[in-house]
C-alpha cells in the first residue's frame, strides 16, 4: 500500500494534516459557542481537502484532485453555510446545558484518543504496517469517530449534534484518503452528495422542531420513553 513507502517529508506532511484535524475536534470539544464549532469544522474540512490534494500529488491519484476541490467546496463552504443558516434561525448561540463541561470533555476526549491509538496500533501491526503513517491515519479516524460520539452524548443543541455527525464523517473521510486512496471515485462522489442531502434533511427537521416542538435542545425532547 502506498502509505507504507513514503519519503519522510511527505509522511510528516500527512501526519501534520491528520494531527491538526484532530486538534480542531478538540477545539469543538473545548468550546461552548456554536460559531466556534462551525469555524473549526470548516477549517478541518479545508485541511482534509489539502490532504486529498497531497495524496493525489504524491500517490499519483489524479482523480483525487477533483475530490479535493469538491471537499473544499462542499464540506468547507456549502455545509458550514447551511449550518450557519440553521444557527441563525435558532435563538441560541451557545450550549447552555451540556452534560459534561468543556474542560471535562477535553479530558475524556484525550482518553479516547489514547484508546484509539491502542486499537489503531494493534490493527496496523496485525496488517504488518506498524510504524507507518497508516497508524496515525487510523488513530485520527477512530479518534474523530469517538469524539463525534462523545459530542453526541454530552451536547444537547441540535446544531452540536449535526456537527458531531459531520465530525464522524470527516474522520472516516480523512482516514480513507490515506488508507484507501484508490477507492472508486463514484463512491466518494455519492458519499459527498449524500452528506449534502443529510444536512438538508437536518435543516428541514430543525425547522419542524422549532415550529412543532418549540425547542432545539434534546434536553426537552423527552416525551417518548418506555
Amino acid at each position: 500500500m502506498f502509505a507504507a513507502h513514503l519519503p519522510p517529508l511527505v509522511e510528516s506532511l500527512f501526519s501534520l494534516l491528520a494531527i491538526v484535524s484532530l486538534l480542531l475536534a478538540f477545539v469543538m470539544l473545548g468550546s461552548r459557542w456554536l460559531n466556534a464549532y462551525l469555524g473549526a469544522f470548516a477549517l478541518q474540512s479545508w485541511l482534509i481537502a489539502v490532504l486529498s490534494a497531497a495524496v493525489a500529488y504524491y500517490g499519483g491519484y489524479p482523480e483525487l484532485y477533483g475530490i479535493a476541490v469538491l471537499t473544499a467546496l462542499f464540506r468547507g463552504l456549502v455545509l458550514p453555510y447551511l449550518l450557519l443558516r440553521i444557527t441563525r434561525r435558532l435563538n441560541v448561540d451557545r450550549e447552555l446545558h451540556e452534560r459534561l463541561s468543556p474542560s471535562a470533555s477535553l479530558v475524556v476526549g484525550g482518553l479516547l484518543v489514547v484508546f484509539a491509538f491502542v486499537v489503531a496500533n494493534h490493527l496496523s501491526t496485525a496488517l504488518g504496517l506498524g510504524g507507518t503513517v497508516a497508524v496515525l491515519a487510523l488513530t485520527a479516524m477512530l479518534s474523530l469517530k469517538l469524539i463525534g460520539f462523545l459530542m453526541l452524548v454530552v451536547r444537547r443543541e441540535v446544531v452540536s449534534q449535526i456537527l458531531a455527525l459531520l465530525v464522524i464523517e470527516n474522520g472516516i473521510f480523512l482516514g480513507s484518503q490515506i488508507l484507501v486512496p484508490g477507492m472508486p471515485l463514484l463512491i466518494e462522489l455519492v458519499i459527498l452528495f449524500d452528506l449534502l442531502t443529510v444536512v438538508a434533511c437536518f435543516g428541514v427537521l430543525v425547522r419542524y422542531l422549532i415550529v412543532h416542538a418549540g425547542t432545539t435542545s434534546s434536553r426537552e425532547l423527552t416525551r417518548l420513553v418506555g
Partner: peptide, 23 residues
C-alpha cells in the same frame, strides 16, 4: 410534537449507527 421528536431521534441515532458500518 411527538412525531417531530421521534423523527429527530430516528435520524440522529441511525445516522450515527450507520456511520460505524461505513467505517
Amino acid at each position: 410534537r411527538e412525531g417531530v421528536e421521534a423523527a429527530w431521534k430516528y435520524i440522529v441515532i441511525v445516522s450515527a449507527g450507520i456511520s460505524l458500518a461505513l467505517l
